[in-house]
Design a protein around this nucleic acid. Structure first.
Lengths: 220, 220
DNA sequence: CAGATTGAGTGAACGGTGTTCACAAATTGA
DNA sequence: TCAATTTGTGAACACCGTTCACTCAATCTG
């Protein structure tokens, strides 16, 4: 593993490429996709707009890389939670709350990550990791969790892991989107004892897990 | 109710305004917000781009009207379902399936309707209709439904209507967004007995209702 | 009816966007 | 040292939303 493997030219190239991505990331996080322009990035790194096209074939390409890397971080967070040795029921809940929490840390990223998926010809949703994309892997974490829940007797036996995982994902995705778009979605404004954001995320996750569990009964 | 109330000039103005909205609606439905430009609309109705600014103060204004009208239709559909005299449990499920079904009829509209909400300073989510917007009303339908479910003994008594309605809304919103972005989200591609879209929407709605119900138990 | 006033519609322009292209400068390889 | 490849640039193209001075037709008023 000698770093003399890559020439100084390549290293310099990677550094500039990184600087472009960093500048883009910064602007994107603060002002979203709308505020991000090639000329703005160029300004930020003191290059001419045209220079960026020596590193990225189009703005979409550049933005796609931002999205993928964000999704990677999101996936990492969920994985990290899923791998913990907590009891299943708390682990399942934490997967969901963790997903939402990380997702809304960068609202613009999360929203954008789902905005331009039209291009994907075949994002097949099979049971296993398949298509190496981060999105695919995030999904397989969910199917694994459902399978474990069913096999461990926590979840209803008739639940199909793939469809159930999709439903669960849709539900937490919905909350993440809601909060990303209207940040004070959970805050029940005029209600004195209203829920804080964190509390609401837990409430929502709890409802989802409940919908899968065998025993429910309102144990007041 | 004599139509001589409005002058021919006003009528003509309304007709042109309508033509602009119709043209915009058509382009928007087919190509989304990205494909919609003032010049494109102007072309479509054989006017100059500048003419449109005699009817709308900005493109955002125009698009906002498209969104609001779409949300109105969505609200109408859900209301219509909520008012039916079906047994509660099927009515509750139909509210959700209906919402998703109508939402994804015009994916671009639905996505856009949630995209630019940042401006709303105070979309307070109280228990009642409040803020006359369509969004607000759609929400109140949900709180009413939860309240009815709790009072009727179908739902767990400890559920707070406002928070529960928000959670339910987030869940169905998530599915609608998923399908809007990746249309074959439910289709389990490589799985032979995979679910069709309609079937999956019902599955998802069923899971949501189950999370609220008192009795669950896996009655296989 | 004549004249003044309002409003609709226009073409041209401004500043912004993503992107391309011919060209200069610098770095690399022989 | 000379050739070749790559990096960076400035100017341009086509598009965007928007504005503004302008024309022309319809309307209201005396």
């Amino acid at each position: 593993m000698q770093d003399s493997e890559i020439s100084p030219a390549e290293r310099r190239r990677l550094r500039v490429r990184g600087a472009i991505l960093d500048a883009a990331e910064k602007v994107f996080a603060e002002e979203g996709e709308a505020g991000l322009s090639i000329r703005r990035i160029a300004d930020e790194i003191d290059y001419s707009p045209a220079a960026i096209y020596k590193y990225f074939s189009s703005k979409d390409d550049l933005v796609d890389e931002l999205k993928e890397s964000f999704f990677g971080r999101l996936l990492g967070a969920v994985h990290e939670i899923a791998d913990r040795r907590d009891p299943f029921s708390v682990r399942a809940r934490r997967c969901m709350t963790g997903y939402v929490r990380v997702a809304i840390e960068k609202p613009h990223h999360y929203v954008a990550a789902f905005s331009g998926v039209r291009a994907d010809d075949e994002t097949s949703f099979d049971a296993d990791g398949f298509d190496g994309t981060n999105k695919g892997q995030a999904f397989s974490v969910l199917t694994d969790m459902v399978t474990e829940g069913v096999e461990g007797g926590h979840f209803r036996a008739e639940l199909d892991p793939v469809n159930t995982a999709k439903s669960v994902w849709a539900s937490i995705h919905g909350l993440a989107m809601m909060i990303a778009h209207l940040p004070d979605f959970p805050a029940t404004a005029s209600m004195p004892g209203g829920m804080q954001q964190a509390e609401f995320i837990e409430f929502h996750s709890d409802l989802i897990v409940r919908s899968l569990e065998k025993t429910s009964g309102g144990a007041a």
